[in-house]
Nucleic acid binder design. Structure first.
Length: 130
RNA sequence: AAAGUAGGCCACCUUAUCGCCACACCCCCGGUGUGGAGGAAAGUCCGGACACCAUAGAGCAGCAUAGUGGAUAACACCCACCAGUCGUGAGAUUAGGACAAGUGCAACAGAAAGUAUGUACAGGUUAAGCUGUAGUGAAACCAGGUAAACUCUAUGCGGUGCAAUGCCAUGUAUACCGGCAUUUAAGGGUUGCUCGCCCGUUGCUGGAGGGUAGGCAGCUAAAGAUUCUUGGUAACAAGAAUAUGAGAUAAAUGAUAAGGAUUGCUUUCUCUUUUGAGAUUGGGAGACAGAAUCCGGCUUAUCGGCCUACUUUUUUU
RNA sequence: CGGGACGUGGUGCAGUCCGGUAGCAUGCACGGCUGGGGGCCGUGUGGUCGCAGGUUCAAAUCCUGUCGUCCCGA
């Protein structure tokens, strides 16, 4: 299983991000919130993932960059949980909602739980659609 | 030895695994190689480079600076000297022009704070605030004090900023632009005002424009860095040599593991009269902080440590 | 990248332009009016004027730097 995180899997399009924030659903697992929304565009063949740390809670750029690196690292290590198991392609956005720094272990565990929850949610949506 | 002053420097290192960004090559699945944050990248307080704009011009206003000289692309920075203030001293610090142009202001105290001149005492005179002292206050006939009060003097300043600006694709349909004719005048635009300048109403004709999101260029080889020589008290300038090593755009430097060095704390042991020195065990600590067009300064944040010069005090020679 | 505003008792504000006494409302404490509450009246309490430096005889006020909060434009 690949553990790479190339540019094609990063969420960069402002249009997709706007749709994600206005129409997407969210899963909360303190201290991180996960926004997700299915991608309708057939030209996009991979999941698009981004991370975000609000400037309001962390004034210094160093702190924000560090947390974003940790979240990217944790997602890269654990994305096998969702990469091939989901039926649709999703736009994902991890948002750090706490006000103080966390260790890599805590963030990694949190990301794993979020990804498991995302899979459960999708399966329930599928049943409802049926 | 202790205390202190000034200036400069470093900003933990190595290896492995998994990853990120840029470039080059092989090849077009992918792989290999090279490189990849700072002294402040920060605050955005000054000064430039560069780009565009007659809505850019002229005058007034406004703003900035303020000893003298130098240096620079430029500056409020920097260097030298003079003067004031602080310090025993090394040194630090200063918006340091003009109140003999005009206007204003001065609480309390005091007779009186600017059209000055009262009281007491002493001196003095024909006489007289004519002379001295006292007391109040920051300041009391002296061309008074105050300009980080208005102001005056000298010098400088057009504006907007790389989201500048140029090009490409997508895409809507007359809202945009050019030319000609018509109207000749209400109105609108700009940096606060005046002048000036620009726009204008309708018709015909020609051209692709505006908003939104995206891509490419601008984009990093430079008033650059290191070393040496020469000139200069110095800031700095000139010359030579060397190597060239971030360019992202929801935004690249990370995570994990191991080892080593640094500092102080702690356990035990050894040496020493003591202060202390050496070895060892264990768990800690390593700051401030992340490039976004690029430079020269300023300011602020900063763990721990090193180097140089100098001053004062005490002791020894 | 650029522009602007504001920091004053526990809270919300004036005073800053034009320097000399820090004031108003509310809150809190005490007393009074009422049988009690509410309300009213009176007295009192409480402020390093964000921080540092400078100018001045004297600074919340003038000047410089700095910290924090908030807003706006491209």
């Amino acid at each position: 299983m690949s553990e790479t995180f190339p540019a094609s899997e990063k969420l960069k399009s402002k249009i997709l991000i706007d749709i994600l924030f206005t129409e997407g659903n969210s899963i909360k697992q303190f201290p991180i919130k996960l926004l997700y929304h299915p991608i309708k565009n057939p030209e996009i063949t991979t999941c698009k993932t981004g991370v975000s740390v609000p400037k309001r809670n962390f004034k210094k750029a160093v702190d924000r960059n560090y947390l974003k690196r940790l979240m990217r690292e944790a997602f890269r290590k654990n994305k096998y949980l969702v990469e091939s198991n989901l039926n649709h392609k999703y736009a994902l956005m991890f948002i750090f909602t706490a006000r103080k720094n966390y260790e890599y272990e805590e963030i990694s565990n949190c990301i794993i739980q979020l990804l498991k929850k995302l899979k459960e949610k999708e399966s329930t949506h599928e049943k409802q659609d049926d």
